[in-house]
Simulated assay, not measured.
Amino acid sequence: MSLVAGHGPLSSRRAGRLSPPVGGSMVLVEPHPRRVRAVRGDDVVLDTERCLLVHREGHPLSYAFPAELAGALPATPVPEAPGYVTVPWTAVDDWFEEGRRLVHYPPNPYHRVDCRPTTRRLRVTVGGETLVDTDQTVIVFETALAPRLYVDPAHVRTELLRATDTSSYCNYKGVATYWAAIIGETVVPDVAWSYAEPLPETEPIRGFFSFEGDGVSVSAELPAADQTFR
């Protein structure tokens, strides 16, 4: 997904430029020599090391498999890879790449998460209360996404936060827990999130908070949003 999303090199809003220029929508199909398995119920319905990755603008990253391996699974031919088909993610109960269970879509080998300590200031207020005001932060650069600041809970008024039942999953950071702000009698839901057990590439933000959402004011010293190259 990273190559074709945001300002990725194959997106319609690429930050850089291709030389010589290439117009129109591009599709990248490439070998992916990893073991991929699909499980439905107690049965492994697909198991192969012969899959491809398909990077297509406007679509999540997808696997493509030799058509004969799809069996009775629903399948759609891949025009750019004759003899290969895609299988809907929801056609099975679970997908695995090697020994890792996947969620939402395949992990992208071009996706990088880079966590760097910084002195960029972050100020967060909710309902007139300041939750954060510090320049001791970590900036997270994630392929095709805008940079974001995370902050150690030591610099957060955590007594004003309470964990909610909301959660989300990222193939590159792990499971996020969300937090509400409790200001007097007012509850402002899901103003922050954190990763209690992040994946190895995001270990530097273990337990750190990032802030966004309705009812929260965030002032973050970040790089300029539009860094396209003309």
Rank of each mutant, 00 (worst) to 15 (best):
V124P: 13
P200N: 11
R50F: 01
P9H: 01
P109L: 15
V22D: 07
A15D: 12
G83W: 01
S210N: 11
T76Q: 14
G174D: 06
G24M: 07
V113R: 10
D43L: 06
P77A: 15
V138W: 11
E159H: 05
R100G: 07
V188K: 14
V187D: 07
V4E: 02
G99Y: 01
G174Q: 05
E97P: 10
D152S: 09
G207E: 14
Y195F: 05
Y169H: 15
G127C: 10
R116Y: 01
A64Y: 09
R112K: 06
T143Q: 12
V87D: 02
Y172N: 12
L10T: 09
E212M: 09
A225H: 01
T164N: 01
T76H: 14
D214A: 10
S12Y: 02
Q136M: 03
L52M: 10
G83D: 00
T137P: 12
F65Q: 12
T158N: 04
G6R: 08
P82S: 12
R50E: 12
G41I: 07
S210F: 01
S194K: 13
A176W: 11
S25Q: 15
V27F: 13
F209M: 11
A192C: 13
Y169Q: 15
P74E: 13
R123M: 07
L52R: 14
V188S: 14
D165N: 09
D94K: 08
N108T: 06
A224F: 02
I182F: 03
L199R: 14
V216A: 05
V218M: 06
P88A: 00
T134V: 13
T177S: 06
R40N: 05
V138D: 07
F96V: 06
E212I: 04
T137S: 11
A72N: 05
L10S: 10
F65E: 05
V151W: 11
A225P: 01
P33R: 07
C170L: 00
S168A: 07
S11Q: 02
S12D: 12
T48V: 02
G41F: 08
T130L: 14
R37F: 04
T125C: 07
L131E: 12
P153C: 08
V87C: 03
W193N: 07
I183W: 02
W89K: 11
S194V: 14
E30I: 00
E203D: 05
G184M: 08
G207S: 13
E142P: 13
D165C: 04
R123L: 05
P77W: 09
G41W: 03
A154E: 13
